[in-house]
Design a binder for these strands. Sequence first.
RNA 1: UAAGCAGCACAGACAAUCGCAGCUGCAUGUGCCGAAAGGCCGCAGGUGAGGAAAGUCCGGGCUUCACAGGGCAGUAUGCCGGAUAACGUCCGGUGGAGGUGACUCUAAGACCAGUGCAGCAGAAAAUAACCGCCUGAUUUUUCAGGUAAGGGUGAAAAGGCGGGGUAAGAGCCCACCGCUUCUUUGGUAACAGAGAAGGCUGUGUAAACUCCAUACGAAGCAAGACCGAACAGAAACGAUACAGUUGCCCGCUGUGUUUCGGGUAGGUUGCUUGAGCCUGUUGGUAACGACAGGCCUAGAUAGAUGAUUGUCUGAUACAGAACCCGGCUUACAGUGCUGCUUAUUAU
RNA 2: UGGGCUAUCGCCAAACGGUAAGGCACCGGACUCUGACUCCGGCAUUUCAAGGUUCGAAUCCUUGUAGCCCAG
Length: 114
Amino acid sequence: MSYKFSESLKRNIDFQSVYKKGKSYANKYLVMYVLENRMEKNRLGISVSKKVGNSIVRHKVTRLIRESYRLHENIFNSGLDIVVIARSSASSVSYWEIESALLHLAKLHHIIKK
RNA sequence: UAAGCAGCACAGACAAUCGCAGCUGCAUGUGCCGAAAGGCCGCAGGUGAGGAAAGUCCGGGCUUCACAGGGCAGUAUGCCGGAUAACGUCCGGUGGAGGUGACUCUAAGACCAGUGCAGCAGAAAAUAACCGCCUGAUUUUUCAGGUAAGGGUGAAAAGGCGGGGUAAGAGCCCACCGCUUCUUUGGUAACAGAGAAGGCUGUGUAAACUCCAUACGAAGCAAGACCGAACAGAAACGAUACAGUUGCCCGCUGUGUUUCGGGUAGGUUGCUUGAGCCUGUUGGUAACGACAGGCCUAGAUAGAUGAUUGUCUGAUACAGAACCCGGCUUACAGUGCUGCUUAUUAU
RNA sequence: UGGGCUAUCGCCAAACGGUAAGGCACCGGACUCUGACUCCGGCAUUUCAAGGUUCGAAUCCUUGUAGCCCAG
């Protein structure tokens, strides 16, 4: 998977460093960790636990988060490692709610361009 | 019309916009990244999850390792015949169980090879005598013997029922049924039918050990193959530069260069043309096979199918390929079709 | 993705196919002026679930569910 301006976060070490050093905000459906990575591009990691549901549900949630990030990729600041974790209440939710939750968390982090 | 039985098919469709991953064709800069292997960048077209992709319960392919040959152990299977690459699967049949029926279910070899177990209750759970019945003795409640018809217990009680017989009884004898053995007929066989004989030597349990027959080497694509920074190692080269080994020389060791082979991170491959799918003819009761023609139909690698809008609608379930096939099991909203059974009504 | 293990009371757990031990906790009582200690009594009703074998299953067989571990 590739994005226009971003990459995906792959290695476990990167995830752990974001969890340890980054800041986090949360709302009803999602949790977001953000850490500056001294690169030009953003790196996005999505994590959906087994508690959320079976493989179909987890895959669906992953796609919704990725799609809502992709459609608003240009308004995010660059040079960030972002990890989005889906909570179990996100299992049966439409695209619009995921999108608004993602943008709400981005505002709390102040990582949206003005 | 109602209630059922068996089998098969489908698993939202269409359009527009944005987006993802392979493939094919065209284009292709002495472009970019990298040590190398290799990767990336443009345009167009077409393709892109299931009936269970699931559980991982069986079997096989494929790969690596082991292996002269055989046996033991271990595990699995277990009526008969067939299908198949193979199977614990499937098909056809036999016996048994259930249902009025269509039909469904069935781990269904051997307790006359041996060992074990059968709690409680009961006289007794396999070398049957507690009560009872009968005979004899004793004479007034006991002893000796005969006896499996009756009693109650238990999941299970010593072939069943009727008659004869007897002191009382008993397959002790007889008829019918059951059982065992033999003969014969049909069937490839399991087995079924018929006839004769034996008087019946004896419970259940092998999803208890076991016996018999058959099968099985082990591990798994994170298998394995190739390229290969780092790093441990070996060899060669050295005018001698530096450091160490005793102050110096020789010698030795390390740093150095080259080569070799091993190989981590990483990358490439394995990877999708296959016991493949569709149509027709044909062999077979069927599972399945043969022939002819046509088709190419996902291949990701932190993991591709999504989002929005509109129209239709009853539109909603269970659910996501990860090396590949054949099965089994489990989950599941509904819709349609075919054949059959039973009941009721009408003709 | 592949391989392996476990499940019994609120917790820790035992159990030859024949009544589901025991400890802690909890509840009631005794002792004490009161509490603790101690003593006595009580506490499993679908042994993770569903089928099967058996006269009889926590135990044997099959299928599932949940949890845990190993291989990066």
